[in-house]
């Protein structure tokens, strides 16, 4: 019985808790991609850099706050700085839309033109970010490190395996839940949200009913900017902030959006968790689990790891390929908001 409990603690510690946090970050990122896709109808390659930008502004503000001795006690100071990060990212989104995307919208350019434009934006933003904060790792997490430490858990339960919950993981999940709840309330309950869904569903009909397309686009960028800044900051808090990682993060985020069905917010959330958990399950070393569950003597000598951790990014690609082969529309047949 203890063996089973130990296994449970082990799996929770290395898969379930990190998976929930990572999944929330991916889900928020994928939601941003999906909203832009649903309204502006293109895959926004610059979304990773938008996340990076939001995180960067938050970090800069956090540093200022830290220097003045302002903090949130056990919570990370970054939460206090986040609103400014969000506002800055929204500003960046709206400015980009005004200067770059609007022209192509009026010209009714093809999605692939948008795509290549968004790649240009991605590199422009990436250069800007590296120019301001440099290409190196930045650590900005403060406050209490853990909600529960592995040692405390062991003492509490008397098990061999510890279960540690970082406060950044707790903060991530809670923030994500709040943001998603607000977003769904907005989309389903408010007039503007409904008009956005209508516009995404059928543009012509929406225009005929007197919905102002520019306003819908405006709101879409506000939502996308907010989601990006929050997702980027949470990822930076949880792991660490490095401009380069956001280019790599683009693949899992796109995979999440596609797995769930592009354009479908519910799908984006589900996709985020599918990708996060698959990554962790496939790269987890099962040596200890097998040691607990198998009779003594049968435990494997190697790590019993399906895929080396170096390849965790390839997991999202494989899932992407499987989805494209088996069900290209995604789990929640996408393309409505």
């Amino acid at each position: 019985m203890t063996d089973v409990l130990n296994t449970l603690a082990l799996v929770s510690n290395f898969i379930i808790v990190p998976g929930l946090a990572y999944g929330s970050q991916l889900a928020l990122g994928a939601l941003g991609i999906t909203i832009v896709y649903a309204v502006l109808r293109f895959s926004n390659f610059a979304h990773g850099e938008m996340m990076s930008f939001g995180a960067m502004i938050t970090i800069l503000v956090t540093w200022v706050l830290q220097a003045r001795g302002i903090n949130l006690g056990p919570l990370p100071t970054a939460l206090l700085a986040l609103p400014l990060g969000i506002v800055a990212t929204i500003g960046l989104c709206l400015a980009t839309d005004r200067l770059v995307y609007r022209y192509y919208r009026q010209k009714r350019a093809s999605p692939v033109t948008y795509l290549i434009v968004s790649v240009g934006v991605m590199f422009l933003m990436g250069g800007l970010i590296r120019f301001v904060i440099g290409p190196n790792d930045q650590i900005f997490a403060d406050g209490a490190r853990f909600i529960m430490k592995a040692r405390e858990f062991k003492q509490m339960t008397g098990l061999n395996e510890g279960l540690a919950i970082k406060s950044s993981q707790g903060v991530t999940v809670l923030t994500a839940v709040v943001i998603v709840a607000v977003l769904f309330w907005f989309l389903n309950r408010t007039r503007t949200g409904k008009s956005m869904r209508a516009y995404s569903d059928n543009e012509d009909l929406a225009l005929l009913s007197g919905i102002n397309p520019e306003q819908v686009v405006f709101i879409a960028w506000i939502i996308a900017g907010t989601l990006a800044a929050v997702a980027g900051t949470l990822y930076g808090l949880d792991k660490s902030y490095k401009p380069f990682t956001f280019l790599q993060l683009l693949l899992p985020i796109f995979a999440s959006a596609i797995v769930g069905g592009v354009g479908n917010p519910l799908g984006a959330i589900a996709g985020g968790f599918v990708i996060a958990f698959s990554e962790l399950i496939v790269t987890f070393a099962y040596k200890k689990v097998l040691g607990y569950l198998l009779p003594t003597g049968l435990a494997p000598e190697g790590l019993a790891q399906l895929l080396s951790t170096d390849y965790k990014f390839s997991v999202s690609f494989m899932i992407l390929v499987i989805v494209l082969l088996v069900k290209p529309t995604g789990l929640f047949s996408g393309k409505t908001l």
Partner: peptide, 23 residues
């Protein structure tokens, strides 16, 4: 499939090829 799937798939495969060659 949709035109942007190719872009996303190639973005992914290129990163994976580099990881493969590095590891």
């Amino acid at each position: 499939l949709r035109s942007d799937y190719l872009a996303i798939a190639t973005l992914g495969i290129s990163e994976i090829i580099i990881y493969f060659l590095k590891n």
